[in-house]
């Protein structure tokens, strides 16, 4: 296995003020007996509520933090012990924190990576050409980073993280704050990177579409524990999550009666919101409403990731569920 996490835990000591000059020490388990493996070439979404232990896990996998216990290997390397050797094998993109040089042209940051990672000249040139083309940054190489848009900068950061051909790419919120087109570009690129080069990708995100479009596998963490590990569809089932049908009628009417398939959750003038199970198709529901009501417009909203996770966690009663058999995934 390419990434092996076995009973890893991370305990922080937090000092809390309890009075004037009085401080109480308390131990917090940010990650608690976490175990999973990721095979080479997998693309995994790593999600959970804020403060669930996502970034702590990523920091341990990238060698930033030392685990308090358990065993952790990435490409056979113990990240905390051999930070520098690991650095050559991994690429990291911190979503909201650019590592590009603010005042300098984009290309200068890449030249620094070239030399810092001691990438052979030919391979650097080849990688740069390919990445820049795939992420359509050709015309921006000589533009100072401070003049790039958020989406351009994110693409620029992704290139910087991949110039040295890492085997695994960690992405922390890679699409946060990006417009629809930039999001699509980033996702298309990641899919291609994964299929063409076989790069293992582990990403944390708040955007369910990132997961839907990219990841065959999702891991959900909460309170430092792995709550779910499996395909996205299974997550929907586990959480019995709901999609929302937003219906605009031609005039104000009493709540729509759509039978047992859906229920109205909100009415605002001629607009009504109906919730229906995410696992069901919207088609019969739409057909029924269209037949019985004066329909002006409608749209379907996917559940957001927090809602899915929250539901799932509630349904599990906060007890971790053993991961399903990975052989079928």
């Amino acid at each position: 296995m390419f990434i092996e996490v076995d009973g890893v835990e991370k305990v922080f000591e937090v000092r809390k003020k309890t009075g004037f000059l009085k401080r109480e020490r308390r131990q917090v388990r940010a990650v608690d007996s976490l175990s999973f493996t990721v095979a080479r070439g997998e693309m995994v979404g790593y999600i959970g509520p804020n403060g669930a232990g996502k970034s702590t896990t990523i920091k341990m996998l990238t060698g930033i933090l030392t685990p308090s216990g358990g065993r952790l290997r990435v490409a056979g390397i113990d990240p905390s012990r051999e930070r520098m050797r690991l650095a050559h094998r991994i690429g990291v993109v911190f979503g909201q924190r650019t590592t590009l040089w603010w005042d300098l042209p984009l290309i200068d940051s890449y030249r620094l990576m070239h030399r810092m990672y001691r990438i052979p000249d030919a391979r650097y040139a080849e990688n740069l050409d390919r990445l820049v083309e795939l992420l359509s940054l050709e015309s921006l190489l000589d533009v100072p980073v401070r003049q790039l848009s958020l989406g351009q900068r994110m693409r620029g950061d992704i290139v910087a993280a991949l110039l040295h051909d890492p085997d695994v790419l960690y992405l922390d919120e890679p699409t946060i704050g990006l417009d629809v087109i930039s999001k699509a570009k980033v996702r298309d690129f990641l899919r291609e990177l994964n299929t063409e080069r076989g790069t293992t990708v582990l990403l944390t995100t708040h955007d369910l579409q990132d997961i839907e479009q990219l990841c065959s596998r999702v891991m959900v963490i909460d309170h430092g524990r792995l709550m779910y590990d499996g395909p996205l569809a299974g997550l929907h089932e586990a959480g019995e999550s709901e999609r929302t049908l937003v219906v605009d009628l031609e005039r104000e009417l009493p709540p729509i009666d759509a039978g047992p398939a859906a229920r109205v959750v909100k009415v605002e003038g001629p607009r009504q919101w109906l919730a229906f199970p995410a696992s069901e198709s919207a088609a019969p529901l739409v057909a029924r409403i269209a037949a019985e009501y004066p329909l002006a417009d409608l749209s379907v909203r996917e559940p957001d990731i927090e809602a899915v996770i929250a539901k799932m966690l509630r349904s599990l009663g906060d007890t971790p569920k053993p991961p399903p058999d990975r052989a079928t995934a």
Binding site: T62, M84, A87, V92, F94, R97, M116
Partner: peptide, 13 residues
């Protein structure tokens, strides 16, 4: 404090 120190730790230097 701003978290950018972490980015130094993932570099081979």
């Amino acid at each position: 404090r701003d978290g950018s120190f972490d980015t130094l730790l993932v570099r081979p230097a």
